[in-house]
Simulated scan of single mutants.
Amino acid sequence: MKIKLFSYNQLDTFVHKLSGLTKLVCFLLLTTTVMLTYDIRIILAILIFSYFLMNKAQIKFKQVKTMFIYVGIFLITNFILTFLFSPTYGCEIYGTKHVLFPIFGRYEVTLEQLFYQCTKFLKYLSVIPLGMIFFLTTNPSEFASSLNHIKVNYKVCTSLSLTLRYFPDVQRDYHTISLAQQARGLEMSSKAKLINRIKNVVTILTPLIFTTMDRIELITNAMELRGFGKGKKRSWYSFKPLQTKDWISMFICLLIFLFMLYIRIFVNKSMFYNPFI
């Protein structure tokens, strides 16, 4: 089955069977764990765990390779810019300096800088799969109903549900408009110059924006005609109650988060793991 980016697909996997609330809590706990530490040991563990979950959710690399390409370009650019603007930041953090080889002026490659930038690289790389798992395995309606059952206002829940549903619609419209423009002679392949491709993308975005505005107006009118927002409560068709596997999953993620706090406060006594001391 071909999975589109940001599009939910119902599969018979352990991850898909979890409640939307469970996946949100686990996502927030794991991403917060990664963001609050620069301990490469913890980050690597979560990186391996996140790709393990992707495999369990039957999300193949070829199905999300476009996202990985964009993320890879961003990470490489960030890696280079970090070195250009702060070539010795790693040395300042770890308090030591092991020069591998000089380049020119203040630019020299140090072991500390490489270690810091690799840790930062892995931080981003470990969070991306978690986001993909959440988007690709969470039913928007079920997710909204789960939030509503923990007393989140149903208007907010419905807005989140519509937002999650809207991503694949925009992606499909962009693809349709792109094919229509290419049929009229618009060049979008690598044969065209970069500046021309940017201009061509703008010609696609213009009708996409108008299509988006039309859909928003259509949905708004439909909700008003059905009296949305008049009552204090609403019923949900796709509510999924929390089960034992949901509580166990959240407990495991909470343990990972608490373990990170313990390592940061009592072992490293800093958010950075220093292997140079």
Score class of each variant (00 low, 15 high):
Y70N: 09
P129H: 01
Y107N: 12
F74N: 02
K97C: 13
E112T: 05
T82M: 04
S50C: 06
N139F: 01
F167K: 01
F134V: 04
K123H: 07
L147V: 05
G105R: 00
R41Y: 15
V127A: 12
S141G: 01
L53I: 03
C91P: 05
V156G: 07
E92C: 04
S86M: 07
F61Y: 14
T82I: 03
K155H: 11
I73V: 12
Q58T: 05
A144S: 13
N139C: 01
I93Q: 10
T66R: 03
A45Y: 11
Y94T: 02
E108A: 05
F101A: 06
A57N: 11
A144E: 06
F134G: 08
N55D: 13
V109F: 06
L147A: 08
P102V: 02
I42Y: 06
S86E: 10
M67T: 12
I59P: 02
I128G: 03
I103Q: 08
I93M: 09
Y51W: 08
L125R: 07
E108F: 13
L111S: 15
K60N: 04
S86D: 14
I40P: 09
I73G: 12
S145Y: 00
K151Q: 01
S145Q: 07
I73C: 12
D39K: 02
T137I: 00
A57T: 07
A144Y: 01
Y70P: 08
V156M: 11
I93E: 09
